[in-house]
């Protein structure tokens, strides 16, 4: 054995050793965090969902009972319907963002001011947004005053956050207010990646704005739109912030997550809350896969610009080539 001083250093300096060392060292922390805060909680969540338990104290195995409760309890499972309002909001938001982003691609004076005004709400903290809109919707305050200025009577106006017919729409609107600007920036980023000569050439060839939008802009941002729709649906299923901070889930505004949060932390039914989380997770995965398949079927892959027929032709050509090679061999 070599016991010379510096042998440890030499050993470390060997490339193979160094390789292993750096892989282990650099991955230790992220993997530990991933296990500790993602996978262990994930597995525990599945385990807890079969128990009747609180954070501390006895646990009792109850089999599928928690899941049966989730589906039978109208308050819990029915709250998923509230998500539909947020999905409606999501559609409005995507459409508005597309409109504004298209406007910004063609030259606009004062672009940076408009962009900043639209985008800024995204940076405000959820709690602050909660207060801003509590104030905004409060009876006789901001919104009502504005509407009165347009000649409406205060008595005719509804209580925006208490009236069960409109309060969910009012809440979904806050979410549109918050995220539209962010979507504009995302779409604009993708649109700007198109060579600007293309627009010029198109307008010289006599394309109108609609044609430019349809044939140049839309294809360039197809994949980001699909990604946003997928994110939007899973985001709507797990909508949480607006009802949590503005109404605290009262008057029928509680979404699934708000219900889950109160089950978990107010009544401390950890098992039931875990079952709810598992159900939602399965729903989100089904929706994501379903949408991916849908887009794959409708617009080939949703991410590629190659059309279906072109893809087919390419695959066929590749097959033919292989067959020929085999024959030759």
């Amino acid at each position: 054995m070599n016991k010379q001083p510096g042998s440890l250093k030499q050993w470390i300096m060997k490339r193979e050793v160094q390789r292993v060392l750096i892989i282990v060292l650099f991955m230790a922390v992220p993997l530990l965090l991933l296990l500790l805060f993602t996978y262990i909680p994930f597995l525990k969540m599945i385990q807890f969902s079969f128990y009747n338990m609180k954070y501390i104290g006895e646990r009792k195995f109850v089999g599928w009972n928690n899941y049966i409760k989730v589906f039978k309890n109208k308050d819990l499972f029915g709250s998923l319907l509230v998500s539909l309002y947020y999905m409606g909001g999501g559609v409005v938001q995507l459409a508005l963002a597309l409109l504004f982003a298209t406007m910004f691609v063609f030259k606009v004076k004062g672009e940076s001011v408009f962009k900043a005004a639209l985008f800024f709400p995204y940076l405000i903290c959820g709690i602050a947004i909660g207060f801003i809109f509590k104030f905004f919707y409060f009876h006789g305050y901001v919104l009502d005053t504005i509407l009165q200025a347009f000649g409406m009577e205060l008595e005719d106006l509804p209580l925006w956050l208490q009236n069960t017919k409109i309060n969910n729409i009012a809440l979904a609107a806050t979410s549109v207010w918050r995220y539209t600007g962010q979507n504009v920036i995302l779409f604009l980023g993708a649109m700007m990646s198109v060579d600007s000569d293309l627009y010029e050439a198109a307008s010289l060839d006599g394309c109108n704005r609609w044609q430019q939008f349809r044939y140049i802009i839309l294809p360039s941002i197809k994949s980001i739109i699909v990604l946003n729709i997928i994110l939007c649906v899973s985001g709507c299923l797990s909508a949480f912030e607006p009802p949590y901070v503005i109404t605290n889930g009262s008057f029928g505004t509680a979404t699934y997550f708000v219900q889950m949060n109160s089950v978990a932390h107010e009544t401390q039914k950890v098992g039931l809350a875990s079952a709810m989380a598992v159900v939602l997770l399965i729903l989100i995965i089904i929706c994501t896969i379903g949408q991916k398949l849908f887009f794959k079927y409708v617009f080939n892959d949703g991410t590629e610009d190659e059309s279906r027929s072109a893809a087919k032709a390419r695959k066929k050509a590749a097959k033919d080539r292989k067959r020929q090679e085999r024959r030759r061999a």
């Binding site: 500790l36 805060f37 994930f42 525990k44 950890v270 939602l280």
Partner: peptide, 17 residues
């Protein structure tokens, strides 16, 4: 896969940990 798991749902068990 971790990016698919909804954060708030996991907080119930993360709290335990």
């Amino acid at each position: 896969f971790a990016s698919l798991l909804p954060g708030i749902a996991m907080q119930v068990t993360i709290y335990q940990i």
